[in-house]
Amino acid sequence: MSAAPDHDENHPHDLAHHFDTHRQQFDAGKLGMWIFLVTEILLFSGLFCAYVIYRANHPEIFIYAHQFLDKNLGALNTAVLIFSSLTMAWAVRAAQLEQKRALVRLLSITLACGFVFLGVKAVEYHHKWHDGLLWASQYNPKHHDSAEHNEAGHGAESDGEGLHGEEPKNVGLFFSIYFMMTGLHAVHVIAGMGAIAWVLNRARKGHFNRRYFGPVDFVGLYWHLVDLIWIYLFPLLYLIH
């Protein structure tokens, strides 16, 4: 990789100059990646804390407002991401076994899943935008429209006209948290897709072998984390009772 020019000849080209063995290089990279993932979790944990505090103090806002989120689209995205985790894990295995064609295909599928996820997210955001269901300062709901894509299940709980129950104060805060959490997550999905595209390109050039497959493994770890965060976001935001 980043070889020094005055590099001795029996030092392999895919082993950085300051490492003695591939094993050492891989271990360092893996440890570094895990620490980075810890920082990512802590980044999100700030938002989870904000979520917990506001939900504890104002449960009525969350119970009221979550009805405007589309459970089906959320579930679809969950399935897409879980599937992409499978293909990503499989890709790591393929890299270890030097199955170049399988590696390229699996990475491509994972990348495609990322696009599907973002597409669904864009549809959801578009609906929120259209209905004025935005963060606190822009929260300006158009109730008439929003009823259309509100799933039927909740209608039974409320009586007649007040489909969503009495609107509590400061509902915009829920959408602030919703957009911060899903927005930050979407940024991470995009970053993950960039990393996958980079690994995909290197895979096509045949950079990986059974001694050197670290980048695939590390990007895989990152992608699993992105999935994992979504698996928490989905019930916390969409499935509130």
Binding site: T39, E40, A136, S137, M180
Partner: peptide, 25 residues
């Protein structure tokens, strides 16, 4: 550095989101 700094990151993100968007948290 690794365990504390990300929390500063999210705090500043929320601060910036308040200044730009007005999220109100």
């Amino acid at each position: 550095q690794v365990l504390a700094t990300p929390v500063l990151g999210i705090t500043l993100l929320l601060l910036a989101a308040e200044l730009v968007l007005g999220i109100g948290i």
